[in-house]
Design a protein around this nucleic acid. Structure first.
Lengths: 191, 191
DNA sequence: CGACACCTATCTAGTAGTAGATAGGCATCG
DNA sequence: CGATGCCTATCTACTACTAGATAGGTGTCG
């Protein structure tokens, strides 16, 4: 059953990039991990830049799907925001990895324009989803003192991405929890 | 006057690491930039890990100095927090670079334990300084609705670091400003 | 003073190893 | 047959790092 090699490549590559960054991973790492030669990777992804683009698109789709589920199941704005925080908390994996797009943002200089655009789109989508969640929260009263929803959204995205970074530096989830504590407190029972 | 080569090396290396990350810069880049051979760099810094450690220590000292000045000159807690935000905003350089420690946190996996410790210390110092500033703000009433100072501090550090990252991805300072807008609003005239 | 010794800061030339990428071949299977 | 998927072998460019030499400054001591 060799048909799922491409999927395995994406799976492993995502993990490695999230742990070591774009410039910190190589085709050699990837090849060894799934048991083929480096040359064979080029059959599936002509260049490293093609692989990373596929990585971002796949990741963005997966996260978008998760957030769509959250929109469907989250009864209040507060529940949605709490779910969003949980997504980033899980992605941190106890301090051993970052959200793919956090990792790639730091290596922005090495990325092709197409990848950079995909990265921006990911951030825009996150802010848009959060804006809607904060708008809902304004309406349902589930979050205390909601400011302009778009501003709350931009702040929340930056907060969770920064919280991941601080957690990564100390290989622990604790700094993440400390950073989002006040926001969670505003969410009441949902937090 | 060759005596300042070491200083030039640190200066250039800091800029390159902040633009391209730890794994995205090489002795070759550095050598070319200041006009010596790569071998000569090893005279000043035996290994790349020694260079990066020196980089962090120098950076941490400089920032600590700046914050100490801010503590002396900032009349209120709000003014101090506003100054802190400005430090990170300047470090972003219109989206072309990151705070050294933000950049290195993303490449944590490639760093030696000593460098990692220095990175953690940098974050701890930032939170400690911010905690004091929020305590002052509680006392002088210069910031609206201050929560537990230590929690406000952790959130603020994460916010500005994340805001930098989002700005970096779109090579612009605008996402940074959007992310800190609500915090700034809380600072009143000082923001 | 001047000879010897050491130090600083750089050089040229090279190491072994790794990077991503390419060309062409060889199975397997519908 | 011919596409698919992987291989071997190779390439060029670059990685951090080392060895050994050199030019020039500084200090010490007879």
């Amino acid at each position: 059953m060799p048909a799922d090699t491409k999927a395995k490549l994406l799976e492993s590559a995502e993990r490695i990039v999230r742990e070591r960054g774009y410039n910190g991973f190589s085709y050699a790492d990837l090849a060894q991990e799934i048991g083929i030669r480096t040359a064979s990777i080029h059959y599936h992804f002509r260049a490293k830049s093609d692989l990373v683009l596929a990585l971002i698109e796949r990741y963005a789709e997966r996260i978008a799907g998760g957030l769509a589920d959250l929109s469907r199941t989250g009864p209040t704005g507060a529940h949605r925001i709490a779910g969003y925080i949980a997504v980033y908390r899980d992605a941190l994996r106890e301090g051993s990895s970052l959200c793919l797009c956090v990792s790639l943002s730091a290596d922005a200089e090495s990325l092709e324009p197409t990848a950079l655009s995909a990265l921006e789109a990911f951030h825009r989508a996150g802010v848009a989803w959060l804006t809607e969640a904060f708008e809902l929260a304004t309406a349902d009263g589930s979050i205390e003192r909601v400011g302009v929803p778009a501003s709350e959204a931009a702040a929340t995205l930056a907060l969770v991405e920064g919280a991941q970074l601080v957690g990564r530096a100390s290989r622990s989830v604790e700094p993440f929890d400390a950073a989002v504590l006040l926001l969670r407190a505003r969410l009441g029972d949902a937090g």
